[in-house]
């Protein structure tokens, strides 16, 4: 069963009195364990699609099912809770709470899920080690490089044990080496824990590592290729 099923998604913005059709009929199914990139030129609607898949926005027309739950039917409070339990996020920047350490940031999501103290402390260290920055556990984001911050973001995303992780241009602010390191680490998580990763990107290096590439243009899917990697 697909964990994500987008059916006939349309999204129109009316902000500036000129209607913008960001998505014009998108159908997409994503399975457990995928490592998928959504690509396209600026204005293609990839961010919009990602927001909808991530439960941050609702379609103007169409349905979005996350494992049989129709997001349209949830109240805003329920949506927030849904995201907490099922979806992980890695943003381009400003991911972490600046006043908490790497360890505390990772624990934070578990605090929200009311995981008991001992268990979450253990899990947090485990994840930080898994993403390769166990030694920086007590550093605050201000003391970490861009690449290190993104690793913590991934650790945190994994900590909630989500169905899938949404990453919106996660490597946009990183140099070449950090980009590779981050992607390799995420690919490993994907292999090891079978976590689904969905990126939006226009970084070729990211696309090179993706197992499936969905291309959007003018709000419609123009190609959908799967690779053996």
């Amino acid at each position: 069963m697909s964990i994500i099923k987008a059916e006939g998604i349309y999204k129109t913005y009316n902000e500036t009195n000129v209607p913008v059709n960001a998505l014009n009929g998108v159908d997409l199914k994503i399975e457990q364990g995928e490592f998928t990139a959504i690509v396209g030129p600026s204005g293609s609607g990839k961010t919009t699609l990602l927001n909808i898949i991530g439960g941050l926005d609702l379609p103007t027309k169409g349905n979005i099912f996350i494992e049989n739950t129709n997001l349209n039917e949830l109240s805003s409070r329920q949506l927030i809770d849904f995201r907490l339990r099922h979806i992980g996020f890695v943003f381009q920047a400003y991911n972490l709470i600046p006043v908490l350490t790497a360890k505390e940031n990772t624990e934070f999501i578990m605090v929200l899920q009311k995981v008991p103290k001992k268990e979450r402390e253990q899990k947090a260290m485990e994840l930080l080690n898994a993403v390769g920055i166990g030694d920086k556990a007590d550093h605050r984001p201000g003391q970490l490089s861009g690449g290190q911050q993104q690793r913590v973001a991934v650790a945190r995303a994994l900590a909630s044990q989500p169905r899938y992780i949404i990453a919106d241009e996660p490597t946009a602010n990183l140099d070449s080496r950090s980009t590779h390191e981050l992607l390799d680490m995420m690919a490993e998580m994907n292999k090891k824990y079978n976590t689904t990763f969905i990126f939006s990107t226009h970084d070729q290096r990211v696309m090179d590592k993706a197992k499936r590439i969905v291309t959007l243009d003018d709000g419609k899917i123009t190609s959908d290729e799967t690779f053996q990697r």
């Binding site: 907490l84 992980g88 400003y94 709470i97 600046p98 999501i109 929200l112 995303a157």
Partner: peptide, 16 residues
């Protein structure tokens, strides 16, 4: 603002 947006995105209720 951005920090708050992240927090709500990852699942923190507004009341908190």
């Amino acid at each position: 603002r951005k920090q708050y947006a992240v927090m709500v995105s990852i699942g923190m209720q507004r009341t908190k």
